[in-house]
Design a protein around this nucleic acid. Sequence first.
DNA 1: CTGATTATTGATACCAAGTATCACTGGACG
DNA 2: CGTCCAGTGATACTTGGTATCAATAATCAG
Lengths: 156, 156
Amino acid sequence: MAASLMLETESRGINLSNALEDRGLRRTGARTAVTGRIEHLSGAFTAEQLCRDLPGVGRATVYRTIRHLVDAGALCKLPILDGAPMYSIARVEHHHHTICSRCGAVGEFRHSTVERVMRSLAKEIDGDIIGHRMEIFITCGSCLNESTTGKFSVHV
Amino acid sequence: MAASLMLETESRGINLSNALEDRGLRRTGARTAVTGRIEHLSGAFTAEQLCRDLPGVGRATVYRTIRHLVDAGALCKLPILDGAPMYSIARVEHHHHTICSRCGAVGEFRHSTVERVMRSLAKEIDGDIIGHRMEIFITCGSCLNESTTGKFSVHV
DNA sequence: CTGATTATTGATACCAAGTATCACTGGACG
DNA sequence: CGTCCAGTGATACTTGGTATCAATAATCAG
């Protein structure tokens, strides 16, 4: 992702273990393994992928830990159209995602115009806006130089 | 949804059975039952809901027919954050959705500014944009007058 | 109309993702 | 150190959806 896109970003210090502790949860071996693995991964991942990577940690614990991290706002859950949802570390307070339809790489961005659109829509919609979500499907720069077939189908 | 929102809309004549025939699929009793039921429903629905409503049609056929309709562009598939995806008839060529987090009602809208945002992002993103998706979570007008609890959790 | 051809159906079995249960374990803390 | 309770993980279960395949229904040529 181009650096210019991140101009409006206030990046957060990321420590997933702390995010759990802040919620009053104990720092245990299993949780440290899960958060450590997530921080070690470069991008987005699925729950099953994490289970495979951490055979020493039970499935239930992996799923529970992910849920805690999502509840804490430290992870974003991205409902991809087909297949299991993906998760990515929430580095930016409120943001949207770019998803490469070939390699699955997920990026974050903020764009003030999106928020302006929301404010203008608020006047027209019959009801209260309580949130929004936006995903941009791309073929990322590095995939443009390759010839692999698509990973996700995109019906938009 | 406010009528003003639909101003940018070119509404399409909707005939799901024709959408299937246009793809070279036969007009059968089961498919007519499924498309008829979908057209009869007021808003968005899940595949399982359709199966329950049509006990005379097999699960496999319901799922197959939905898939055909999505492929034909006659239905939109909406990945709600938790639970099964919802489907709604695509009345407008390219559009976005409002989703009431209480009653699950789904609306469509077009807003030219969203497309303008896409064009400005295209210059900044490292890669090719191949599509985008936007959902606005709302509490719709009719739900504002009630006191039911939320149906969907919204982490945005 | 009749029979041949082929798409479609739906019961069944299956698979994948995720959750509930519950006896056991190990952190925290007096 | 011992107690207590949060946390764990094996297991069984649920849900959403797909593959299989024999039976059935559309379609079409004659």
